[in-house]
Amino acid sequence: MAELTAAGEQGLVEALRRGDEAAFASLVEELTPSMLRVARLYVASRAVAEEVVQEAWVGVLRGIDRFEARSSLKTWIFRILTNTAKTRGAREGRSVPFSSLGGDEPDGPAVDPDRFLGADSRFPGHWAAPPRPWEGGERLVAQETLELIELEIAKLPPMQAVVITMRDVEGFDSDEVCNALDISETNQRVLLHRARSKVRRALEEYMG
């Protein structure tokens, strides 16, 4: 993924203002997949999410002359997206499921408690069944493994899936994700940790 440095970003903003279509197209490629995932949290269907994303991009293009770089371009774009999606979700009478999604459902710990020694043991909280090292690390990037990871991400609660996709698949940093989703840093970190822990668990079964 193209990294938007401050200087690169300024150049990109100017290119958009000039009407440089190639610059716009590359930004669309970079951000639209995440925008769709985020929009999908607020609206009922994939089709409506696409409309929201399109509307947000129109807002971005109309507003680009007023963009003052007080936040990163990415953050600014996601703010527009989130506002557009919220408005649309409200109009659809969808009582925004966001706050409930923000916490997701109660979730277990990262590792099954049975794998640790109990309170009555000599070393409570220490490994009873420690993980076995994974052999053949190159298998981790094999196509089959990557498909397993995708499948596992698809099974996650929606907010966990969005956060791990933005952070670990697409390489957004923590601030960018918090801004895009309007959640606290702590919440973002909890969601990410749960998601990563579940993906690791799936890999453990597969690699073991």
Binding site: L146, I149, D168, V169, G171, R196, R200
Partner: peptide, 13 residues
């Protein structure tokens, strides 16, 4: 190490 490997592998998706 497995968590780090998981994060790295996820980055290849």
């Amino acid at each position: 190490e497995q968590m780090r490997a998981t994060i790295a592998a996820t980055g290849h998706v």
